[in-house]
């Protein structure tokens, strides 16, 4: 399977099943597009018409290079993976290596676009007890098989509304991990309202990653991310996020925004994040009920698609200027990325 596209002056060809990536010239791009549809002679004849300025010998040479890559398994590689999906499921059956702990089903913000219904998930307001969390960690260790790296995300709602239990659970996990032969990696996702020096110190010591919710421009953020009195949270949280990130000393974090019908031009929000000094960024489309005012529409799509392309250009510009930043979905490790098992199994 081939996916080919043009962007930023490059002709890019992805060979999906082998994972190969090729940058090609115009004639190679056109030959690849029809390589499986005709004989060598037919394609060479068609290319001679389409590219009259290119010598026939060059076109033939190009065709043969493509044929050699096909032979080598780097173009038009067959999909031999489909039967592996079931095999993988059986291989990992019953093994758990990660938990998302809903440490607080409550929140100190009242964001109408929240996919978790203001943290309550359509239930009662509640916080997790230490005992429940402890049993969850014991369950994870007991069911993790031979996996060494175990991941626990403190999520909500707003997990800092139950911060004491977060601290107790981390202490408990640290107390058992060595004897259990495990390595816990914790993540904290927070709206920032309750960040203080204690939280910053703890998060930077114990959390392998923190996810900080910020939608970008003040007016965009404060449209949805308001407290129960209706006040925007941008002014309150941005200095706290800046303090936390500065103290993080290079450890991972994500500044994570949501874009909605109100800001399909989300590149402007990414620029705001950059202006504020953040450079590990993520923006995700809103998840909401059909008909919600924040819902993205068909009309938003061309704008959004254009933003993703402009984002790539901005990343290159900033990289050349010595001010690089990362964007979650563009952090693709071509040479050391996930194996095919991971790609097939997806999230887990």
């Amino acid at each position: 399977m081939i996916h080919q596209y043009k962007l930023g002056g490059y002709n890019i060809v992805l060979d999906i099943c082998s994972g190969a990536v090729h940058v090609v010239d115009e004639v190679a791009y056109d030959i690849i597009a029809r390589f499986l549809d005709g004989s060598r002679e037919d394609i060479l004849a068609a290319m001679a018409k389409q590219h009259p300025h290119i010598p026939a010998a060059d076109i033939a040479e190009c065709y043969d290079q493509i044929a050699a890559l096909k032979e080598d398994g780097q173009l038009f590689a067959p999909d031999t993976f489909e039967p592996m999906a079931g095999h993988l499921k059986a291989k990992t059956s019953g093994v758990i290596k990660a938990l998302c702990l809903h440490i607080a089903h409550t929140c100190n913000l009242n964001c109408s676009y929240c996919f978790a219904s203001q943290g309550k998930y359509h239930g009662d307001r509640a916080v997790m007890s230490f005992e429940v969390g402890k049993q969850a960690l014991d369950f994870l260790v007991a069911n993790s098989g031979s996996r060494r790296n175990l991941e626990v995300d403190f999520f909500g709602g707003e997990p800092l509304m139950n911060f004491d239990v977060v601290k107790q659970l981390v202490a408990y996990a640290r107390s058992i991990e060595k004897d259990a032969g495990k390595n816990f990696r914790f993540t904290l996702t927070t709206n920032g309202v309750l960040i203080d020096d204690d939280v910053i110190d703890f998060a930077n010591r114990e959390m392998s990653n923190v996810v900080l919710s910020l939608d970008g421009r003040r007016e965009i953020h404060d449209r949805f991310r308001v407290d129960y009195a209706g006040n925007g949270s941008w002014d309150k949280i941005v200095p706290k996020f800046q303090q936390l990130v500065k103290a993080r000393g290079g450890k991972n974090y994500y500044m994570r925004g949501t874009f909605t019908h109100a800001n399909p031009d989300f590149l402007e929000d990414i620029k705001t994040m950059l202006d504020l000094g953040f450079n590990e960024l993520s923006m995700e489309p809103v998840v909401c009920a059909p008909g919600d005012p924040s819902e993205l529409t068909e009309e938003d799509l061309p704008v959004i698609l254009d933003q993703y392309e402009k984002l790539a250009e901005l990343m290159l510009e900033r990289d050349k200027a010595g001010k690089p930043f990362t964007f979650y979905h563009y952090m693709i490790d071509l040479s050391g990325g996930p194996c095919i098992y991971k790609r097939i199994s997806g999230c887990g």
């Binding site: 990536v21 090729h22 090609v24 398994g73 031999t80 290596k97 060494r148 040479s335 194996c339």
Partner: peptide
């Protein structure tokens, strides 16, 4: 005509991947 970027070969990764870590 073609510059191939060095990538992980997914077909090969089928032989020794899947550790789940």
């Amino acid at each position: 005509h073609i510059k191939t970027i060095k990538t992980r070969n997914l077909c090969d990764s089928a032989k020794n991947g899947g550790c789940g870590e």
